[in-house]
Amino acid sequence: MYGLTRYKLLFLLPGLLILLGIILFPLGFTIRVSFSGWDAARPGLDWIGGTNYSRLFADGRFWESLSRLGAIAFTSVILEYLLGFALALLVWRQVRFRRLTRVLFLIPMMTTPVVMAVIWRTIFHESLGPANDLLSLLGMGSIPWLTNSFWATVVVILVDVWQWTPFMFLLLLAGLLSLPREPFLAAAIDGAGPIRTFFNVTFPAMAPISVGALIIRLIEASKIMETVYVITSGGPGTSTETSSYYIFIRGLRDFQIGYAAALSVTYLVIMIVLLTIIAKSLSRYLVKNGA
């Protein structure tokens, strides 16, 4: 193993250093700004100590948005995972029109979220959109899609599921496609049915990728902002206001840069702690259970 250290570093360092180089200043700056009162009227890095942080702890809207975000992000990611896995299994093996269906399943992910959000908003427009119109054709009453807390949340989740199930689908399909054949042959020889094969062979082999996919999607889903902005503006009232949307409102709408930085730093810390716990327990549960 001569010179292994050199090779070790050769692989890791270029990426790590470049990333650090790009991210270090913005991160440090954000932390510094969070101790300042930078806003529209007074730009600059004055020092106001922990004022922003003490304000934040008393800011009910932030904490509510955080728990709301938790509910929205978890629900959509779990739905996306289940649907994505199911779809990947459907088109993994031979299916008629396999190429077409696979391509079709990928497409929503390719669209720009903010643009699709505008389209979705027109779809759920309660008097001019097709959603209610089709319901009435089926003889059902119209649904207050965007003006009722429950339904507005449903719409936000639905749009996220539409857009990002393909992400899960692609990741899991690629995982399935790169699985070695031998275990499946062995299972077939043992006479295992499809369900037993899935739980004994497929799922355990897919566990690491599943954990990775869930974590990335949780991170991305937590940043949901543009969709909310376009579709509901956080309404009705504040019932679909998520943390990142709230940070956006405070930061770029109100232009309270200092306060938004404090919100973000807090959000970052909370997310890192939560995600570490989730990642660890997911790995333990899924990977160990399978293996």
């Binding site: 890791l12 990426g15 790590l16 990333l19 991210i23 200043f25 913005p26 991160l27 700056f29 954000t30 700004v33 974590i215 990335i216 991170i219 991305e220 937590s222 940043k223 902002m225 943390s243 990142s244 940070i247 956006f248 930061g251 770029l252 840069i257 938004a260 930085a261 919100l263 973000s264 959000y267 970052l268 997310m271 890192i272 995600l275 570490t276 990642a279």
Partner: peptide, 20 residues
Amino acid sequence: LTFFFISQRIMPPVVLAIPF
């Protein structure tokens, strides 16, 4: 280290606008 990489995506982009 692996988590460090992915954690770069956690930060809401809004506040990174000004430092960038």
